Amino acid sequence: MEIYKQLAFEPVTVKDIDDLTRIMKRAFDEDTRRHLGKEQGGPPGYDNGDFIRDWYINAKSDAYKVFLHGTLIGAVNIFCWKDNERFLGNIFIDPSYQDKGLGFLVWQFIENKYPNTRKWQTETPGFSTKNHHFYINKCGFEFAKIEKFEGEAHFTITLEKNIIISMQ
Protein backbone atom coordinates (compact mmCIF):
# COMPACT_ATOMS: atom_id res chain seq x y z
CA MET A 1 0.00 0.00 0.00
CA GLU A 2 1.23 3.47 -0.91
CA ILE A 3 -0.03 6.54 0.94
CA TYR A 4 -0.32 10.04 -0.52
CA LYS A 5 -1.83 12.63 1.79
CA GLN A 6 -5.19 11.15 2.91
CA LEU A 7 -5.37 8.64 0.03
CA ALA A 8 -4.08 5.06 -0.12
CA PHE A 9 -3.22 3.23 -3.32
CA GLU A 10 -3.00 -0.52 -3.93
CA PRO A 11 -2.56 -2.49 -7.16
CA VAL A 12 -5.82 -3.62 -8.76
CA THR A 13 -6.40 -7.39 -8.69
CA VAL A 14 -9.01 -9.69 -10.20
CA LYS A 15 -10.84 -9.65 -6.84
CA ASP A 16 -11.48 -5.91 -7.34
CA ILE A 17 -13.34 -6.17 -10.65
CA ASP A 18 -16.89 -6.21 -9.24
CA ASP A 19 -16.36 -3.39 -6.71
CA LEU A 20 -14.52 -1.17 -9.18
CA THR A 21 -17.08 -1.83 -11.91
CA ARG A 22 -19.89 -0.62 -9.63
CA ILE A 23 -17.95 2.59 -8.91
CA MET A 24 -17.00 3.05 -12.56
CA LYS A 25 -20.61 2.60 -13.65
CA ARG A 26 -21.80 5.25 -11.18
CA ALA A 27 -19.06 7.65 -12.28
CA PHE A 28 -19.60 7.25 -16.03
CA ASP A 29 -23.39 7.25 -15.72
CA GLU A 30 -23.23 10.50 -13.71
CA ASP A 31 -21.06 12.10 -16.40
CA THR A 32 -23.48 10.93 -19.11
CA ARG A 33 -26.50 12.28 -17.17
CA ARG A 34 -24.78 15.60 -16.55
CA HIS A 35 -23.58 16.22 -20.09
CA LEU A 36 -25.88 14.24 -22.38
CA GLY A 37 -29.12 13.98 -20.39
CA LYS A 38 -29.12 10.18 -20.73
CA GLU A 39 -29.48 7.82 -17.77
CA GLN A 40 -26.42 5.72 -18.57
CA GLY A 41 -23.46 5.46 -20.85
CA GLY A 42 -19.76 4.80 -20.96
CA PRO A 43 -17.09 2.97 -22.91
CA PRO A 44 -17.67 -0.66 -23.86
CA GLY A 45 -17.53 -2.92 -20.81
CA TYR A 46 -17.71 -0.14 -18.22
CA ASP A 47 -20.83 -1.70 -16.71
CA ASN A 48 -20.05 -5.45 -16.79
CA GLY A 49 -16.43 -5.75 -15.61
CA ASP A 50 -14.88 -6.10 -19.06
CA PHE A 51 -13.32 -2.61 -19.00
CA ILE A 52 -11.57 -3.24 -15.67
CA ARG A 53 -10.56 -6.73 -16.75
CA ASP A 54 -9.23 -5.58 -20.14
CA TRP A 55 -7.54 -2.28 -19.22
CA TYR A 56 -6.63 -2.69 -15.54
CA ILE A 57 -5.88 -6.41 -15.21
CA ASN A 58 -4.94 -7.84 -18.62
CA ALA A 59 -3.31 -4.79 -20.22
CA LYS A 60 0.26 -3.89 -19.47
CA SER A 61 -0.70 -0.96 -17.30
CA ASP A 62 0.04 0.16 -13.79
CA ALA A 63 -3.39 0.10 -12.17
CA TYR A 64 -4.24 1.28 -8.67
CA LYS A 65 -7.40 1.27 -6.62
CA VAL A 66 -7.86 4.39 -4.51
CA PHE A 67 -9.00 4.51 -0.88
CA LEU A 68 -10.04 7.43 1.29
CA HIS A 69 -9.87 6.62 5.01
CA GLY A 70 -10.23 2.90 4.19
CA THR A 71 -13.15 3.31 1.76
CA LEU A 72 -12.66 2.30 -1.89
CA ILE A 73 -13.54 5.40 -3.95
CA GLY A 74 -12.08 4.77 -7.42
CA ALA A 75 -9.11 3.76 -9.51
CA VAL A 76 -6.50 4.96 -11.97
CA ASN A 77 -4.41 3.25 -14.65
CA ILE A 78 -1.25 4.34 -16.44
CA PHE A 79 0.51 2.95 -19.49
CA CYS A 80 4.28 3.40 -19.66
CA TRP A 81 5.62 3.96 -23.16
CA LYS A 82 9.10 4.38 -24.57
CA ASP A 83 11.25 7.43 -23.90
CA ASN A 84 9.55 8.19 -20.57
CA GLU A 85 6.21 8.95 -22.19
CA ARG A 86 3.10 7.82 -20.36
CA PHE A 87 -0.60 7.56 -21.06
CA LEU A 88 -3.16 8.16 -18.34
CA GLY A 89 -5.78 5.54 -19.20
CA ASN A 90 -8.32 7.03 -16.85
CA ILE A 91 -9.10 8.18 -13.38
CA PHE A 92 -12.54 7.52 -11.98
CA ILE A 93 -13.90 8.56 -8.62
CA ASP A 94 -17.28 7.61 -7.15
CA PRO A 95 -19.65 10.57 -7.73
CA SER A 96 -20.32 10.87 -3.99
CA TYR A 97 -16.61 11.74 -3.53
CA GLN A 98 -16.22 14.06 -6.54
CA ASP A 99 -15.73 17.82 -6.36
CA LYS A 100 -13.63 17.51 -3.20
CA GLY A 101 -10.17 17.70 -4.78
CA LEU A 102 -9.60 13.94 -4.58
CA GLY A 103 -9.10 13.44 -8.33
CA PHE A 104 -6.39 16.08 -8.21
CA LEU A 105 -4.72 14.27 -5.29
CA VAL A 106 -4.77 11.09 -7.41
CA TRP A 107 -3.09 13.03 -10.22
CA GLN A 108 -0.45 14.44 -7.84
CA PHE A 109 0.27 10.92 -6.59
CA ILE A 110 0.75 9.74 -10.19
CA GLU A 111 3.05 12.63 -11.12
CA ASN A 112 5.14 12.00 -8.00
CA LYS A 113 5.26 8.26 -8.68
CA TYR A 114 6.58 8.81 -12.23
CA PRO A 115 8.96 11.77 -11.84
CA ASN A 116 10.98 11.04 -15.00
CA THR A 117 8.00 11.36 -17.33
CA ARG A 118 8.73 13.68 -20.26
CA LYS A 119 5.23 13.67 -21.71
CA TRP A 120 1.79 12.67 -20.46
CA GLN A 121 -1.14 11.97 -22.74
CA THR A 122 -4.78 11.12 -22.08
CA GLU A 123 -8.13 11.08 -23.87
CA THR A 124 -11.58 12.11 -22.73
CA PRO A 125 -15.01 12.36 -24.35
CA GLY A 126 -15.64 15.64 -26.15
CA PHE A 127 -18.91 16.16 -24.28
CA SER A 128 -17.33 15.87 -20.83
CA THR A 129 -16.55 19.51 -20.11
CA LYS A 130 -16.00 18.71 -16.44
CA ASN A 131 -13.13 16.41 -17.46
CA HIS A 132 -11.73 19.13 -19.75
CA HIS A 133 -11.69 21.57 -16.83
CA PHE A 134 -10.02 19.01 -14.58
CA TYR A 135 -7.26 18.01 -16.99
CA ILE A 136 -6.54 21.49 -18.36
CA ASN A 137 -7.12 23.84 -15.44
CA LYS A 138 -6.15 21.55 -12.56
CA CYS A 139 -3.59 19.12 -14.01
CA GLY A 140 -1.89 21.29 -16.65
CA PHE A 141 -2.76 19.37 -19.82
CA GLU A 142 -3.30 21.11 -23.17
CA PHE A 143 -5.51 20.21 -26.16
CA ALA A 144 -3.59 18.11 -28.69
CA LYS A 145 -6.28 16.88 -31.10
CA ILE A 146 -9.95 16.15 -31.59
CA GLU A 147 -11.06 12.90 -33.19
CA LYS A 148 -14.63 12.47 -34.40
CA PHE A 149 -15.82 8.92 -34.84
CA GLU A 150 -17.40 8.30 -38.21
CA GLY A 151 -21.12 7.74 -38.02
CA GLU A 152 -21.23 8.80 -34.38
CA ALA A 153 -22.24 12.12 -32.88
CA HIS A 154 -19.50 12.17 -30.28
CA PHE A 155 -15.80 12.86 -30.43
CA THR A 156 -12.71 12.28 -28.33
CA ILE A 157 -10.25 14.91 -27.20
CA THR A 158 -6.60 14.00 -26.79
CA LEU A 159 -4.75 16.04 -24.19
CA GLU A 160 -1.01 16.27 -23.58
CA LYS A 161 1.26 17.57 -20.87
CA ASN A 162 4.89 18.06 -21.78
CA ILE A 163 7.33 18.15 -18.89
CA ILE A 164 10.42 20.28 -19.16
CA ILE A 165 13.26 18.56 -17.37
CA SER A 166 15.95 20.98 -16.34
CA MET A 167 19.56 20.02 -16.99
CA GLN A 168 21.57 20.83 -13.87
Rank of each mutant, 00 (worst) to 15 (best):
E147P: 02
S96H: 05
K113N: 09
D99H: 14
Q121I: 07
G126F: 01
F141N: 13
G101A: 11
N116K: 04
F109W: 08
A144R: 10
K130G: 15
Y135W: 05
F104P: 00
E111F: 07
E142S: 15
K100F: 09
D99Y: 14
T124R: 10
T124Y: 07
Q98R: 08
G126T: 02
Q98T: 13
P125R: 03
F134A: 12
G103K: 12
I146S: 08
E147Y: 08
N116G: 08
G101M: 09
P95I: 06
T124A: 14
T122W: 02
K119F: 04
R118L: 13
K148F: 10
F141K: 02
Y135T: 13
F141S: 11
F109L: 05
L102H: 04
H133E: 15
W107K: 05
H132W: 04
P115H: 00
I136E: 15
K113Q: 05
F143I: 11
T117K: 02
I136V: 14
F92E: 01
I136P: 12
E147Q: 08
I136A: 06
T129N: 13
K138A: 09
T117Q: 01
E111Q: 05
F127M: 03
N112Q: 14
K130V: 13
F134E: 04
G103V: 09
H132K: 09
F127G: 09
P115N: 00
S96L: 11
Q121C: 10
Y135V: 08
F149M: 12
G103P: 00
R118N: 10
H133M: 02
G101T: 08
E147H: 15
P115G: 00
K119D: 00
D94G: 00
F92P: 02
F143L: 14
F92G: 00
P95S: 05
N112P: 03
G103I: 14
I136G: 03
I93W: 09
F104A: 04
F134S: 13
A144N: 14
L102A: 09
V106E: 09
K138S: 13
L102W: 10
L105C: 06
N137K: 14
G126W: 00
F149E: 11
E111I: 01
I136R: 11
E111Y: 00
T117A: 15
S96I: 09
F149T: 14
K145F: 10
W120V: 15
K113L: 10
T124H: 12
T129I: 13
D94K: 10
H132M: 01
K138T: 06
S96M: 08
F143H: 15
L102G: 01
D99A: 07
